[in-house]
Design a protein around this nucleic acid. Sequence first.
DNA 1: AGATAGTTTGCATTCGAATGCAAAAATGCT
DNA 2: AGCATTTTTGCATTCGAATGCAAACTATCT
Lengths: 356, 356
Amino acid sequence: MANSPRDKKPSKSDGTVIPLIKGRRATSYDVARLAGVSQSAVSRCFKPGASISGKMRERVMKAAKELEYQPNAIARGLITQRSNLVAVLVSGRLNLYYPEVLFKITEELAKAGLQALLFTVETEEDAEAVIEQAWQYQVDGVISASHMSQAQYKLLEKRQIPVVFFNRYFAEHPNTVVFCDPAEQVHDVVKQLQALGHRRAGLIIGPEDNMVSRERARMVDESLKACGIEKVCEVRGDFTYESGTSGLQEINRQTQEMPTAIICINDMMAMGCMDEARSVLGLEVPKDLSIVSFDGIGMSQFASYELTTIRQPIGRMSEAAVRMILERVERPDQSHEKRVFEGAVIPGGSIAQAPS
Amino acid sequence: MANSPRDKKPSKSDGTVIPLIKGRRATSYDVARLAGVSQSAVSRCFKPGASISGKMRERVMKAAKELEYQPNAIARGLITQRSNLVAVLVSGRLNLYYPEVLFKITEELAKAGLQALLFTVETEEDAEAVIEQAWQYQVDGVISASHMSQAQYKLLEKRQIPVVFFNRYFAEHPNTVVFCDPAEQVHDVVKQLQALGHRRAGLIIGPEDNMVSRERARMVDESLKACGIEKVCEVRGDFTYESGTSGLQEINRQTQEMPTAIICINDMMAMGCMDEARSVLGLEVPKDLSIVSFDGIGMSQFASYELTTIRQPIGRMSEAAVRMILERVERPDQSHEKRVFEGAVIPGGSIAQAPS
DNA sequence: AGATAGTTTGCATTCGAATGCAAAAATGCT
DNA sequence: AGCATTTTTGCATTCGAATGCAAACTATCT
């Protein structure tokens, strides 16, 4: 066993370097042979901070360049127990909040030298399968912006895979979270509505099991109460545009007299709501109906909508999520942290004086 | 060397199974030990179609379940030379065509047991870095829906990494491609414009280096010529909403008299264009200005826009792309294939009789 | 120069699963 | 039962990089 395994490969024993067989990629052994050094030296050249002399580094790098050598991340992962892969769980549903988050997170991960392994998750059953997949791939961490049950979270915890929740968390459990708390802004916006003479509002909320929706709805309820605005109706949607349109119809059906303001729990539904109001119910927005919402996705500011909405600082939140995953990977036993960002009101053109 | 390496791990030599040290994941050796079989047997149990008896499978599976064993995809990848990872290159720019494609592709990959390694690419320099990353991760293939130079493609080819291009290709090179060719539909739409009395059209195209834009523009030019519609103006955008708004402004500036129809090379720009026409230039769409475009993204059918657009069958195209990657991975020497899908006109409310 | 401390380097082993080969077991056939 | 086949199983090795340890250098100081 004194010989390196590579010596069994076709190579003249006199040390002459033979060309790589077509398609085989250069390994650290190939580079070592060409540079006339040991494989360990090659390895160390590619490890920042390793003990290596300038001369050696130069020789190795030259050989590496010649062979177009790049360390094999898979093999590295095997030995270091770090894959540098992070599973990112998002919903594929057409709620355009997700792509924005996803792209931001991917970018931030890339900056930190990590790769995003993308999973789309629609239900908790999906999450089940996804978690197993992620586990097989030895992901260093999981950023979850989509469904995940408590049991599933516990499983990941037990397996010591750090999880960062993006805009969701389990109150009963310590967990690492990035969150946007728009309480303040909700209050501002509702006060604005009040000042504009609104006394009756409708609410379009999200799925029952969705925590963001529940929280936002709670804040809205509180603020409405505090401002003396009556909630005349509450209907449930699923965050999509379509459920915004049907939501408004539903409100229209359930009330004898339409409320003067609609609060939607996310922008997509608000857009559906606005379109429905204008093109089907023949209402003018904001003259006849004011609409406000949450998220502040890019689209919400298109001239057709110009929503008054409460923006989440997605960029900062994504950055935070990646930082936190990194930290938890480095120091898994560190205690959990919750980073809560404020929202910000984007004053749009979707609210106005209440009609009399 | 007669002992399995695992025997060096803390385990009583009498064969008693000791509990896993906290956090260490079970390996095939652990399962083998617990089940009293060899590691190879365990491995074979998880390989579909391997030669194994029912009794053996049962025993192993029981032990595997107990230890929550799942094969380590990283280690497997190392020995099989297949990572089951596919790099997906998209643009992170706010062109909402990408998220749709991305989510579809991810879903299809998952069905085939592959994982999407997500990369956002804005420029060819980005592509450079991304290709190196992908190479390090031993991806089995690349699906590129974003920037990639010919040199970069050649590099991947040389490294024997199959590439499937999504809506782009190099004419000078054999390559595997999924493409949407809307020539027929362009002709239909332009004829419709003609029938509606349009004689002067403006064109908002995409970046010069973008092949989809070039091709679409070429088809539009041809059809316009064939239908006797004059192209009064052509301005360049970058596929974003904003470049649609500024594009229309530019057209307004460049022409003494506005054209009666605008053809946008993608939906996002068309939406910007439409909003600008309505809210800034005070034009009614479609009464004063007809707008048509390409892609058929979800948003384009929102009631505020209802674009007449030429849809790409993204679902089928994504499925095809994944199939093709799989095929090329299985049989790398197979000749290339180009799958060309027709577009489909979505008749919207964004065109009407030309004003006199 | 010689002793000492500090760097660099190479050796050998390790990560966890897959697989060619040969041995062992099960099956079929006379 | 005896022999030939076929199917299962285990052994030993392999994939490619990282790393603890000891050996081989360098640099420093007296």
